[in-house]
Write a protein that binds this DNA or RNA. Structure first.
Lengths: 185, 185
DNA sequence: GTCTATAACGAGATAGAC
DNA sequence: GTCTATCTCGTTATAGAC
């Protein structure tokens, strides 16, 4: 399943075959279908849930490392940019590729992806709340923080450059701080 | 080719078959291969270039309609949100799905997608420059404006809601105006 | 539970009559 | 230039020996 998650992340859902997952993981095809009787869609959804939890843990850890929300967001974008570059620009968002293909086509995959984004948004939301933002501002900003980061991730992949993500961090920190109550007026 | 562009937009590259394009367009398979001897990848790249030009024209028109860059960006997000909802949440970014699948796998598709984003970024950049931003700020913000919009598009598709895009417009306008020289200090 | 073999089908691509 | 028929290969999924 870790293999499936990895392949889904780099190739998307449609381009990843069951045989490819079997080869990459060392499991046999029969064994995979034994544990995932729902076939490719069930395995895909499970793999996305796995990526979801994994990324959520990393996100929570990085957010906790910096008290200020803006600085925490910058740290996240730096981490993502570094990992992306290290992977040869193939390890982008763990669920975006599968999500985009699945909209209106593969409900199981789409649902799992939607829930992943919701969970990550909740983490950012809480961080923003602790930073002193109002309930409404925090809720709205959490959405934009994720969307901007996600879009920047794709831009980095296409440009083979860390710049879009780092720029996103800078802009998001500025945007968040513009909503924060000032300490010294 | 318009059919190919449409299918690539809603399903991505890998999930779209040549036979499906033939059926959807009314052309026969032999005819398609006659005009696109490079096969699926050539047709796909051409379709992305088509979507690129089409979207660039719409973007330029909407940007020109409002003198203030922030208001222009809000108008763009509104337009995108309306079109997306009207399409039943399937007509997202014309190239993102194919772009994500193609990174490091299908150079022809990846290149066409990268050039599309570059062209759109140039349009936003010029608008920001006319709005009085410095060369550097305009360049950096143009990237983030596109990335945020793009990320919000996917969020709207998954949530079946226009809110993420409208929120993105609000935040981007605020961010841009924070970089604009003030008229009345 | 694990593996091999294969069924049933669709993919991209091509040949050749018209 | 257009169409039909087909080739070859890979896909998801299953059957059944072990």
């Amino acid at each position: 399943m870790r293999s499936a998650a990895r392949l889904l992340r780099t190739q998307g859902y449609e381009a990843t075959g069951m045989k490819e997952i079997a080869r990459h993981s060392g499991a046999t095809l029969g064994s995979i279908y034994h544990f995932f009787p729902g076939g490719k869609q069930e395995l895909g959804a499970e793999a996305i849930r796995h990526s979801d939890s994994e990324f959520a843990a990393a996100l929570a850890a990085t957010l906790e490392r910096h008290p200020d929300p803006g600085q925490a967001i910058i740290a996240c974008t730096r981490l993502l940019a570094a990992e992306l570059a290290e992977s040869g620009w193939v390890c982008g968002c763990p669920v975006s590729a599968a999500a985009l293909e699945s909209v209106g086509r593969t409900p199981g995959i789409e649902g799992a992806a939607a829930r992943a984004f919701e969970q990550w948004r909740e983490l950012v939301y809480r961080k923003l709340r602790h930073g002193g933002l109002s309930e409404r501002n925090a809720r709205e900003l959490a959405v934009t923080v994720l969307n901007t980061t996600n879009g920047a991730l794709l831009a980095c992949q296409l440009a083979r450059s860390q710049t879009p993500l780092l720029t996103a961090g800078k802009h998001l920190a500025r945007l968040v701080s513009s909503y924060q109550p000032k300490e010294k007026p």
